[in-house]
Design a binder for these strands. Structure first.
Length: 424
RNA sequence: GGAGGCGUCGCAUAGUGGUUGAGUGCACCGGUCUUGAAAACCGGAGUCCGGGCAACUGGACCGAAGGUUCGAAUCCUUCCGCCUCCGCCA
């Protein structure tokens, strides 16, 4: 969340930065409540100071066995006043907090201004789009023909937007996961971590999914637990309420998890194939960084994610999200988009963001700076990268005229030497 | 699911209604001593929210929320978390 002190001091400029996101987030109600709360707080604290002092006097009087009944009577009145004020202050505090939780992060000044995804900026492109002497098919078509993807049976088990991977398809999914993990662990120096796929509401509030986006989450009926929409949630929350050792920053984690999203509101969109499923696999990169380095860390993290696509030799581009398309908690985001020949378009496969101190403030994650002052860390994360979409991209970019799919060379050591997927 | 135990300032602990402005040990920071270090000794240190140009100063915080009281780490209620044992189980 944003710092209430900064909002108080720079209301106008923060308001204008917020409005770059598009929908109006008004700070006025917040400021009014804050002012009211401060007045009441001052009053209550004065009363409490008075009471604390009198309590000492009463104790002293009782010790020498003198009568304190007049003071006690007086303090009964003071305590009654306090008892009236405190709940009012508490409910104002709660309301203020609630409003703060619903205000998104401020876009960084380097973020291109814009309304929606059409205003996103292509930063760079990599690779050569494959050319085929036949009509390229989409991954659903390719996968079903090879009997490695089965959406019909998945629908029987769970409904739409689920997939079953079969035969060498299941094997390929596993190979991609292992390959991504190994690159980030061995080459990029991330620490491997394995986490729960179910988390409590507090964790989701920490990273920003709650309270505003509950409808996107799968929730357990009998327990206060949610299925994670991304590994970002458990991994970032590992350090909730902690003071991190400055010498160990940046901390870099890589984590494979399944991810679960309700995709409410995306009815009719990408209903086919692997692109937008309720359950998908992802290898996630998460960093905790010092504020002065966080934007450089974002560049590095983005390059780390890009490298797995380069190694797979899949063409992609890097896009800077504009202010209107930015995620709720993010100050700056680069999307990686892979080329999908079957659709003749780019598809998002990774999203790399710097959340600055927004999540850290929600989660209370700090470190001591060079002056030994406590500061909030900056948190970052990015997909490195989504497995299902990488699977789809491989099928489309590596498809052959006869319907088979060649496998990227770098995967050979993970596929038990299988170089090509043919119909079983 | 059943029974029992426990949640105190980074860690470990003391503390059952009023000098608790939460003690002690370890760890931490500064100093003395030392060629340097260790040890020893001396001293200092928490977080959050306010007021003040500042020195400084008010309030809150002992898992959480309520309650009793002039006054709560301490008493009462509810909740949460952790541990141990039993049951069930991959």
């Amino acid at each position: 969340m944003l710092d209430i002190k900064k909002i108080r001091e720079n209301a106008a400029s923060i308001q204008s930065e917020l409005s770059k996101r598009g929908p109006r987030y008004s700070l006025q109600g917040l400021l009014d409540k804050d002012k009211k709360r401060k007045e009441l707080l001052l009053k209550a604290e004065e009363l409490k100071a008075k009471r604390n002092k009198a309590s000492e006097e009463i104790a002293a009087l009782k010790k020498i066995k003198q009568d304190a009944s007049q003071l006690i009577q007086e303090m009964q009145g003071v305590s009654a006043e306090v008892k009236a004020l405190d709940p009012e202050i508490n409910s104002l505090t709660e309301e203020i907090n609630e409003e703060l939780l619903n205000i998104p992060n401020l876009p960084d000044s380097s973020v291109p201004a814009g309304k929606d995804e059409k205003d996103n900026q292509v930063i760079r492109e990599w690779g050569i789009k494959p050319s085929f002497d036949f009509v390229a098919r989409d991954h659903t078509d390719v996968g079903e023909t090879l009997d490695i993807l089965d959406f019909k049976t998945a629908a029987k088990l769970s409904g739409t937007r689920f997939a079953i991977l079969k035969n060498n398809g299941a094997m390929l999914e596993r190979a991609i996961i292992s390959f991504f993990l190994d690159i980030h662990i061995q080459k990029h120096g991330y620490q491997e971590i394995w986490v729960p796929f179910l988390v409590n509401p507090q964790s989701l509030q920490g990273t920003g999914q709650l309270p505003k986006f509950e409808s996107e989450l799968f929730k357990c009926r009998d327990d206060e637990l949610y299925l994670i929409p991304t590994a970002e949630v458990p991994v970032t929350n590992m350090h909730r309420d902690e003071i991190l050792d400055a010498a160990l920053l940046p901390r870099k984690y890589v984590c494979y998890t399944a991810c679960f999203r309700r995709e409410a509101g995306s009815y009719g969109k990408d209903t086919r194939g692997l692109i937008r499923n309720h359950q998908f696999n992802k290898v996630e990169l998460v960093k905790f960084a010092k504020p002065e380095n966080s934007f450089q860390e974002l560049e590095d993290l983005t390059h780390d994610a890009e490298e797995v696509l380069q190694l797979l030799k899949i063409p992609y581009r890097v896009v800077a999200l504009c202010s209107g398309d930015l995620g709720f908690s993010s100050a700056k985001t680069y999307d990686l988009e892979v080329w999908m020949p079957g659709e003749s378009r780019y598809r998002e496969i990774s999203s790399c963001s710097n959340f600055t101190d927004y999540q850290a403030r929600r989660m209370n994650i700090k470190y001591r700076d060079d002056n030994k002052t406590l500061q909030f860390v900056h948190t970052l994360n990015g997909s490195g990268v989504a497995i299902g979409r990488a699977f789809a991209a491989i099928l489309e970019n590596y498809q052959q005229k006869d319907g088979s799919v060649l496998l990227p060379e770098v995967l050979l050591k993970y596929t038990n030497g299988i170089k090509i997927i043919n119909k079983a």
